[in-house]
Design a binder for these strands. Structure first.
Length: 662
DNA sequence: GGCTTTTGT
């Protein structure tokens, strides 16, 4: 362990905006009090209130927007309860609380229902896709995903059902959260009664506060004393996590995988009991590390005996993911080697040591080529802190960063680029249009996407006949596309299918296209997987192959065993069924009849082309590794290795999808 | 020559 040193542990800091007032609150037992100070009085002795009093004072008298800078204190679940007790959920109005993940919505909702002693689904309920556990007559506090609240805005643009909207985990800056911010700011102008509460990791709080600051210099003096201010108030809650000792490398290394493995072995050798969580970038790295450690475990029993090594990434079948939660046998030490799924989505108990490679895979959108890529990139300081924090949940822990402190201080970005700036914007633009925001460039974006990305999105929507020359939604196509909960290209494909007479087939394809992958990536079973694929492969390509798989799945009686045998992810297939059912309902509501083309693949391919013609390519050279060029911009592309057409000699001169840029 | 970080309507 001599390659590491420890300059001391990190502690969360309080936020101080210097304008709308600063609130402090500490959740540590020794000082469970907080203070408030206006700018002038900051250095004076502060009045001290209870947390509840502070929240209510802010919401009722002080500001229309409150930003809670929070470091994993768990205090945010109390806010909706305080607000309800204070009468904010009366007169037919509700309190809405968003989370970026379905699982978080469910668990937070049930925790709050339990704390309030009410039955989940009555006074406290939640709404996520495919599941609505609310009662229109009884529900006062409603938890929902950020994307769900966006959908609700399409029917009720001013969100009149709600008196207060609370957005949690705002620092993650998901596309939906950012879109919500721009829209909520707009709503506030029309609804001065609406209160926003935004909960975020402290480092992001300042940025958000300035975005929501709608006070113009000239208007400052006109605010009446009694009216809540338009300058956001900030409340800072200190976390209850245990201290984490941070260790850095003395010199940077080139091979983080090998360094991660040797660090794990060193911890196991020298440190007391406690599980180890290792953050790597993806499945390849993780499988390689698992193998290296397993070999070490078997060959050098003296150093590495007693290790239970578990990989963790989202592509893993459910049963294998669950291994992570099994209690570690006595005398053994669990090593979890994970992607950043363990950074926010899953919480592992019992972790005391974290090894942070400093890298993760990140989506990167190239608007010129209209292609989303995944690249291994350095993480931000915020991510590094989040990773380190995972070691301090049960007791004080240690985090080993596989980079130098100088690199952390001088070169690491403080925050990552918001997802909005790394994504294709077609879905965003269509949602804004559906809400009547026609001037996309004039929208108050929390982060401005590149002009190229906006232009590309408009161009694609125009080519699909979803928007017209004035960039307004077309009728009925544009409005229908906005109503279908899918990527616009997929929605257009579905609508075309209704006139071609193959909706039954196309909604199956749409469902498969809108989830990650139906295949299981068995470790070391590449051959078997390829063979399984061949059983379903259609000469026409991947879309028709999906139809074959769906048929087979139904024929098996939706059997999990059948999926296992054919290297198909059972969980994913169940999701396909759910999405397909939802699409059916949406189409029926729109008056689109469901028709089957009875296996006429030409009709199906016409519908696919109607949605995805922008990705058309021309075959340039025949052969097992044919070179294609995109029709739109003549860029070189090859067939993606995951396609059933990979390495096949093709007789068509045109092909769609499953292509990747070399 | 050989792929998929992670969410979500």
């Amino acid at each position: 362990m001599s390659q590491f040193w420890k300059p001391g542990s990190e502690r969360p800091r309080l936020v101080d905006d210097g304008e709308g007032g600063v609130f402090f609150y500490s959740a540590t037992p020794s000082s469970s009090r907080f203070g408030y100070a206006s700018m002038e009085k900051q250095r004076q002795r502060l009045p001290v209130f209870k947390y509840r009093t502070a929240i209510l004072y802010l919401v009722e008298n002080h500001a229309t927007t409150i930003i809670v800078g929070e470091t994993g204190s768990g205090k945010t679940t109390q806010i909706p309860q305080y607000l309800k007790e204070a009468g904010w959920a009366e007169g037919g109005r509700m309190i809405a609380c968003t989370q970026p993940r379905r699982l978080a919505v469910q668990s937070v909702a049930s925790r709050v229902a339990e704390e309030m002693g009410v039955k989940l689904g009555e006074e406290v309920g939640y709404t996520i896709r495919f599941e609505d556990l609310t009662n229109p007559d009884l529900t006062r506090i409603k938890f929902l995903t950020d994307g769900m609240l966006l959908r609700e805005m399409m029917d009720d643009p001013l969100l009149t059902k709600y008196s207060i909207i609370m957005v949690d985990e705002a620092h993650e800056r998901s596309v939906s959260t950012d879109l919500l911010f721009g829209l909520l700011k707009k709503i506030q102008r029309r609804r001065p009664d609406l209160r926003l509460i935004i909960s975020s990791a402290t480092i992001e709080a300042k940025t958000l506060a300035s975005f929501f600051d709608t006070s113009k210099k000239s208007h400052v003096g006109t605010d009446k004393e009694s009216e809540p201010k338009k300058v956001p108030a900030m409340l800072s809650v200190e976390g209850r996590g245990f201290d984490v000792e941070i260790h850095y490398l003395e010199e940077s290394v080139s091979d983080y995988l090998q360094t991660a493995v040797s660090t794990v072995l060193a911890i196991h050798d020298q440190e007391p009991a406690g599980d180890i969580l290792v953050f790597l970038t993806g499945q390849d790295d993780i499988d390689a590390a698992v193998q290296l450690l397993t070999e070490e475990n078997e060959n050098h029993g003296r150093h590495a005996s007693g290790l239970t090594i578990v990989p963790l990434y989202s592509g893993l079948p459910r049963a294998e993911q669950d291994l992570v939660f099994y209690p570690t046998p006595k005398g053994k030490r669990k090593i979890v080697i994970s992607t950043n799924i363990a950074e926010t989505s899953l919480t592992l108990e019992g972790v005391v040591y974290v090894v942070d490679s400093g890298f993760s895979k990140q989506r990167y959108y190239n608007p010129i080529a209209d292609i989303e890529n995944l690249i291994v990139a350095p993480i931000s300081k915020a991510s590094a802190r989040q990773r380190a924090g995972r070691a301090g949940r049960v007791r004080s822990g240690k985090c080993y960063r596989l980079y130098t402190e100088e690199y952390y201080i001088k070169e690491m970005m403080s925050e990552g680029t918001p997802e909005m700036q790394r994504s294709n914007l077609v879905s965003c633009v269509i949602q804004l249009k559906a809400l009547g925001i026609d001037n996309i460039l004039g929208f108050d974006w929390p982060v401005l996407p590149s002009p190229e990305a906006i232009i590309r999105a408009l161009e694609i929507l125009y080519s699909l006949d979803i928007i017209d020359e004035d960039a307004k939604l077309t009728s009925p196509t544009g409005f229908q596309v906005a109503e279908i909960p899918m990527d616009p290209m997929i929605s257009k494909m579905i609508l075309s299918a209704s006139s071609l007479g193959c909706t039954e087939e196309i909604i199956t394809i749409a469902a498969v296209l809108s989830i990650q992958s139906i295949w299981v990536f068995g470790r070391g079973a590449q051959k078997e997987l390829d063979e399984a694929k061949l059983r379903f492969a259609a000469a026409e390509g991947d879309h028709i192959t999906y139809l074959n798989i769906y048929k087979g799945f139904l024929h098996s009686g939706k059997s999990a065993q059948w999926c296992h045998k054919n290297f198909i992810n059972y969980q994913t297939m169940k999701k396909v069924i759910e999405i397909r059912e939802q699409l059916k309902k949406v189409l029926q509501r729109m008056g689109v009849s469901l028709k089957s083309c009875d296996g006429d693949t030409n009709i199906v391919r016409k519908a696919v082309t109607a949605g995805f013609f922008a990705y058309a390519c021309r075959l340039e050279a025949f052969g097992p590794s044919g070179l294609y060029k995109t029709v739109r911009s003549s860029e070189d592309v090859y067939i993606h290795p995951s396609s059933v057409l990979f390495r096949k000699v093709l007789m068509f001169s045109y092909i769609l999808l499953s292509l990747f840029w070399a």
